[in-house]
Design a binder for these strands. Structure first.
Lengths: 128, 128
DNA sequence: GCCAGATACCTTGTATAACAAAGTACTATA
DNA sequence: TATAGTACTTTGTTATACAAGGTATCTGGC
């Protein structure tokens, strides 16, 4: 079990949340998003981002318009739909609760209270 | 696109982290873990937990011993191996950085600084 | 006009993991 | 010896990240 797999898993759900948030702040195209995510140390590559944007659009959460560029091919500038804004609001709640739940688990260092842990079961001389 | 999918994605990587943490605090068996995760409002079901525990064991991160119960069939009590402790330490760092990165993205509300957003490209009268 | 390089977007195949649902095995009790 | 409860297991489905390779557009040098 490579730790990278788990790290990827951790990133997974967060990615969608972050991307919707970035789009919510103003029109951006894919390279803008990649740049912002990279500068926040969230690793993403094109092969992940483009299919994700396609999924979001098919789901009606984002929309885009082609805009010509002065330095290359045209770009897809994305915006959030109303459904996308609602979705983002829900995701915000989900994320915050998840952080809270995780903190609850990982800062709980007792465990002697409700955990019986009868390691060797001394009550019965368990011989066959 | 159902929001449940995204919520599941968010849970994914965190689950492994939480379970390793629970095991690190003392010997527990599957139902103990389910109970603790549920009380922290992290939804998990048997069909997720058992395969995950099997994966962790195959990877050498956890170990278990059968312990007889006075009220039913024997139970597998899990412990963390040294590799598991090291892994948990790394996951802690990964998780904390991810929370930080996500906060950086989702609390950044300007966007007018480094985002050009030339929505309609006024520089060229782009007529064919 | 033509070609090389850069930019931007897209597609295919593979691997991983959560989950639902159904199944197996062991124990106690009536 | 049934029945119910507890604990662990397995199979099939679906979703998604990612690597790698592909297509299309634009600019600038010749």
């Amino acid at each position: 079990m490579k730790i990278e797999n788990t790290q990827v898993q951790m990133r997974k759900g967060i990615l969608e949340y972050c991307i919707l948030h970035i789009i919510s702040r103003g029109e951006v195209y894919a390279s803008d998003m990649l740049e912002e995510l990279t500068s926040a140390k969230i690793m993403v590559v094109e092969g992940t981002l483009y299919p994700l944007l396609t999924r979001l659009r098919k789901a009606g959460l984002v929309d885009y318009q082609w805009v010509e560029s002065t330095s290359g091919p045209p770009r897809k500038y994305y915006t959030l739909t109303q459904a996308g804004q609602d979705f983002l609001t829900q995701l915000k709640t989900t994320w915050e609760e998840l952080v809270k739940s995780t903190n609850q688990i990982t800062t709980n260092n007792n465990g002697s209270e409700s955990l019986p842990t009868p390691v060797t079961d001394p009550q019965k001389s368990s011989q066959s």
